[in-house]
Design a binder for these strands. Sequence first.
RNA 1: GGGCCUGUAGCUCAGCUAGGUAGAGCAUCUGGCUUUUAACCAGGUGGCCAAGGGUUCGAAUCCCUUCAGGCCCGCCA
Length: 516
Amino acid sequence: MHWADVLAEELLKKQTKHVLATGITPSGPIHIGNMREILTTDAVYRCLVEKGGDAEFIYICDDYDPLRKVYPHLPSSYEQFVGKPLSEIPCPCGKHTSYADHYLVSFLGSLHEIGVNPQVYRASEMYKKGEYNESIQIALENTDKIRTILETLSGRQMPKDWLPYNVKCETCGRLSTTHPSLYEYPMVEYSCDCGHTGEVDIRKSGQGKLPWRVDWPARWRMLGVTFEPCGKDHATVGGTRETGAKISEEVYRYPHPGLLVYEFIMLKGQGAMHSSKGTAVSGEEMLKMTPPEVLRFLIMRNQPNRHIVFDSGLGLLTLVDEYDKEEEVYFGKEAETKGMKEFKKIYELSQPYHIPKTMPLHLPYRHLVTLDQIAKTWPEVKEILLRTGQLPKKLKKDDEEHLMQRAEHVRFWLATFAPDDVKFEVKIALPKIILTPEQETVLYILKEKIPDLTWEPEAIHNAIYEIAEEKKIPIKIAFTAVYQVLLGQEKGPRAGFFLSNLEKKFVLRRVTEAVK
RNA sequence: GGGCCUGUAGCUCAGCUAGGUAGAGCAUCUGGCUUUUAACCAGGUGGCCAAGGGUUCGAAUCCCUUCAGGCCCGCCA
């Protein structure tokens, strides 16, 4: 059984109604770990629904969290906002209502693209609407109990006058610089590093927030959460997962949800990825270089508790090939290979939206890598494909959209993470090169031959090969001559195939020019 | 120190949430075809499944111990 089915069945054994939650702080661009969290939840959600469960998938945007620091992606002027809730900081681009919204909007866009559409809750609104008020009161009244839990489980010492409540300073608007000193229902006294001292009435909403370790269990009860994945960093002994579960049961009297721990996604050769440290590959980039169904595939085929190594180099092409193979197996075009597990379910879960009724048109992904470099836009790529008969004349709309989307992902990859040895550029004019006499001979004969050649990969390749053989010129020299003239470099994509994708007229003109 | 993950062919890994004759891709070798670049097809070579113990008729798979590597342990996926 697929892991998501196993999890769904475990949940259904307890009850049929479920709320699956995921919470992500919009403090910066989405990163790769967010992708895993959200897709893991989505997988369980889909399985629950499929099995007749009454499931709800919610995403809680932690936009009431304070800005921790000036992240690498922010201008230094954001120093002044450190400590303020993300929902009350201006948008970096000026187009959104707040800092949090800026990232939330693009985050939701990303989610939509990978086929995840949860119900969105904003922590800032929940606090301001007073939905947290009761939880805040319960927390404050159980201060000692919470302190004991945190101190015994996590082993850290809390300050003497610590309260499970972070006041938002009425003067400077910061959450992280205040020090609550005394709670006496309904007032909390506090002082702030800005010099202000005062007190807030917890019956009024939006005056402060619960610290993360308390906030998390509080919302489980408020929203009836029954399942929520969390990263391995929370899963350590004494971590938020453990304290949260205990606070949930002992303070909020709510059975803690299933807290699935998932492993991190590592970047090949670079270890785990971190938003705060500035990542080598951001989630945004990962999304732009990996077709959505392939990104889902990567997550779905791996058990959550196993780490994933993402290779943004040539490994990405292999991943896409593996996905295509899986698709062929799913549609019965390829035999299932031994050790291929749960391919049916994995394929279905990999679809952002609908499962295709018939197999989508396949074009080797590597092929697109070449074509994208010959032609600059999709219509041109399409034209080549049609001219060379690599696409049926009557291209289905779905297939075209799919191919076009893949071509775009390839283009992004080429511009960013593709290794140099797959890159080339067809030069608009004859590059400044010095040809050896042997190469000139090859090109001269080739020029004579081209007009009568059928413009097909094999014919072209054979023609070049025959010239070399006839003139006793090493094959390699013959091929480099062709690459020199067109690309200005010694290597390139497989020659026959490559030239057949270029226009015959163009090649003839270039070769003629080169031997003039 | 603690937690989790990993250790299977030369390399990258699947198989371990159904215990039942060890799998794929790449590399290599042979042939098709003296065919550059990660070319294509057919076939071959190649593994004491990290080590040791246990459960079992039977273990890569379950349990225990050990060794090695990775990640995490204020906030962070």
